[in-house]
Nucleic acid binder design. Sequence first.
DNA 1: AGTATTTGGCGTCAGCATAT
DNA 2: ATATGCTGACGCCAAATACT
Length: 255
Amino acid sequence: MWWHQHNLCFRHHTQEDCSLGDLEKKVSVAGSGTGRGSPAVTLVQLPSGQTVHVQGVIQTPQPSVIQSPQIQTVQVATIAETDESAEAEGVIDSHKRREILSRRPSYRKILNELSSDVPGVPKIEEEKSEEEGTPPNIATMAVPTSIYQTSTGQYTATGDMPTYQIRTPTTALPQGVVMAASPGSLHSPQQLAEEATRKRELRLMKNREAAKECRRRKKEYVKCLESRVAVLEVQNKKLIEELETLKDICSPKTD
DNA sequence: AGTATTTGGCGTCAGCATAT
DNA sequence: ATATGCTGACGCCAAATACT
């Protein structure tokens, strides 16, 4: 996958991505030769030790969980190779390369496509209903007052609870962000600066939430891949056993 | 016990995709 | 054309774990 190939796992973040790549590879390999006659519910033990019930994940002659990214991989692998030589000649710069490489589809998209193909695969919901048990609509955004910026540029909450955990429904305007006067009524440079600051804070806040949501989806996606790998491995084993049995039956007896 | 390394999560930025 | 959303990458921090 290009997003792995181009980042050589220097840090744990990218190592994470690499293991995700391995997982995706596993699923595509394990799933490539299967797809019929599986039990409705399979009990599978994950590498982590926990046992999961997976329902009909591999029943259909399905495309792989990661089929679309995989197709990209093939494209990219060839492109990347040619790129290497091209780079040696100094023909294609990194920007152009970026343009060639297609973007990885979102986890939501991948998983939802999968779930529409395959029953038993959970859909990633559009708006998750507060899994932390925090009721929606109780948010109180006291944003700037309890936050200071550290020497490293990070924002830190001064209270017990980090400010970022205090959230509002994504559609609503954060309460801490007071709507400034309409742009038409802005006059002084100071007002303009305040408006710019306010916009920035709003953008950062939204992005913060988006990043959290994105990570949550990614985890869900990885979980899904893990259970799929486990199921496919079980089925693969069964098929191999079945094959051996059939071989025994069909092979001419040598006595 | 003290230190080093690993792991997991966070906020932010950049850049692409999509909606308006 | 602009706004908005999504996600990879990065740097940081804290907790967990391994090592001495």
